[in-house]
C-alpha cells in the first residue's frame, strides 16, 4: 500500500502566509551565504541536505485527506477534508475515466468533509464513489453541507453515482481487497479509527481521538487495535499538558500518548497527524523531534519505533 497525504491539518485549513515565507527565506539565505552555490543542482542539494525541514518545506495546511493506493485497485480515500480537492484535480487531468473511488470516513466534523463539494470527480457522470464508515450520519452531513444557502450546487446535482455503505465497529469488511475494521474513539459526536490490512501489512488511521488516560482498559483496547501495525497515523494535535488540562474533552491527543500506545502495541511506525492550525512549521517540527526523542529515551528493550510527522504531499509505502 502506498500512502499519500493530501491534507494533514486539523480543525481548519491554514496556509503559509507572507510573513512565514519571508522568515523562511531570511533563514535560508543566511545559511546559504556561508558558501557559494554555483548551480541549481547545488542549490537543490543545499536545500535538501543542509536546511532544516521547517525552513526548506512546509507541513501544509489542507485538512485531513489521505489516499491509499494499490496498483490496479481503485483509490481508497480516508476522509474528505480540503486535501481531497487536490486529489480530484490530479485525477481530472488524467485520461482514464470513468473512475471508482472508495472512501472511508472517520467522522463528520467540518474539517473532514469540507473538501467534498470541491472534489471534481463527483461532478463527472460515470464515476462511482462508494462512501463507507461506522458513523450514522455520513450521508446526512454530506448532503447538508451542500444545501442552500451554504453551497450553490445541491448534493443531488452531483453527476457521479454516490453510494453510502454503513459499517459496524469491530466487524471486519473486505473493501476492494483491503480488510477494514473500525473502532469507536472518544470524540465529540463520535469518531472511528480504522485498521486496514492488505498483503500482510497493517495500516491504522486513528485521528480525532482523545485518550483519557483514566482507565487502563481503554489504553489496552487501543494497543490491541494497533497491535503490530506497520504504520499508525495518529492525532497528535496538542501537547500532553494541554490535552489533560485546558484542552481536556476537546477530543484530541498528543505526541506523547502516540509514542506510548505504539510502544505498547509493538507498532513499527508512528505518523503524527492532525496538526494544530495555530502551529507553524517550526512548532510542528519541535513536536516531531520531541516524539523522536521520547521514543529513544523510553525504548528500553523494544525494537525501535520510527516516528514521522505527516505533511501535505508526503508519500510512504506500507
Amino acid at each position: 500500500m502506498r500512502v499519500r497525504f493530501w491534507g494533514t491539518r486539523g480543525s481548519i485549513p491554514v496556509a503559509l502566509d507572507a510573513a512565514g515565507l519571508h522568515a523562511k527565506l531570511v533563514e535560508a539565505l543566511l545559511k546559504a551565504s556561508e558558501r557559494p552555490l554555483r548551480s541549481a543542482a547545488e542549490a537543490r542539494q543545499f536545500i535538501e541536505r543542509e536546511l532544516d525541514f521547517s525552513i526548506s518545506h512546509t507541513f501544509g495546511g489542507a485538512s485531513p485527506c489521505i489516499e491509499v493506493e494499490r496498483p490496479g485497485a481503485a483509490p481508497l480515500i480516508l476522509d474528505l477534508g480540503s486535501g481531497v480537492r487536490g486529489l480530484g484535480a490530479r485525477d481530472m487531468a488524467r485520461a482514464d475515466r470513468p473512475r471508482t473511488y472508495n472512501v472511508i470516513m472517520s467522522h463528520m466534523h467540518w474539517d473532514h468533509i469540507m473538501g467534498f463539494p470541491f472534489f471534481a470527480p463527483a461532478y463527472v457522470e460515470g464515476n462511482h464513489i462508494r462512501i463507507f464508515g461506522c458513523h450514522a450520519e455520513i450521508e446526512h452531513a454530506l448532503r447538508r453541507q451542500q444545501a442552500a444557502p451554504s453551497f450553490p450546487v445541491p448534493f443531488d446535482r452531483l453527476a457521479a453515482r454516490i453510494e453510502f455503505i454503513g459499517l459496524e465497529p469491530g466487524r471486519r469488511y473486505d473493501i476492494d481487497g483491503i480488510a477494514v475494521t473500525g473502532m469507536l474513539q472518544a470524540h465529540s459526536g463520535e469518531s472511528y479509527a480504522y485498521r486496514l490490512e492488505h498483503g500482510g501489512k497493517a495500516l491504522i488511521y486513528a485521528t480525532d481521538s482523545e485518550h483519557k488516560l483514566e482507565d487502563p482498559r481503554e489504553s489496552e483496547a487501543f494497543a490491541a487495535f494497533f497491535r503490530n501495525a506497520d504504520m499508525v497515523i495518529f492525532d497528535a494535535m496538542y501537547s500532553l499538558a494541554e490535552a489533560v488540562s485546558i484542552r481536556e474533552d476537546w477530543g484530541h491527543s498528543s505526541n506523547v500518548v502516540g509514542v506510548e500506545l505504539c510502544q505498547l502495541a509493538g507498532a513499527k511506525h508512528l505518523v503524527l497527524f492532525h496538526h494544530e492550525p495555530a502551529y507553524d512549521d517550526a512548532a510542528i517540527t519541535r513536536i516531531w523531534r520531541d516524539a523522536v526523542r521520547l521514543e529513544e529515551i523510553t525504548r528500553g528493550e523494544r525494537p525501535p519505533l520510527r516516528v514521522s510527522a505527516a505533511y501535505d504531499g508526503l508519500e510512504m509505502d506500507v
Binding site: 500532553l240 499538558a241 488540562s245 506523547v256 526523542r293 521520547l294 529515551i297 523510553t298
Partner: peptide, 15 residues
C-alpha cells in the same frame, strides 16, 4: 535525566 526530558517533551515544565 529521563524524567526531566519527559516533562519538557510533554510541556509539563510549562505548567
Amino acid at each position: 535525566s529521563v524524567v526531566k526530558e519527559i516533562f519538557e517533551i510533554s510541556r509539563f515544565n510549562l505548567v
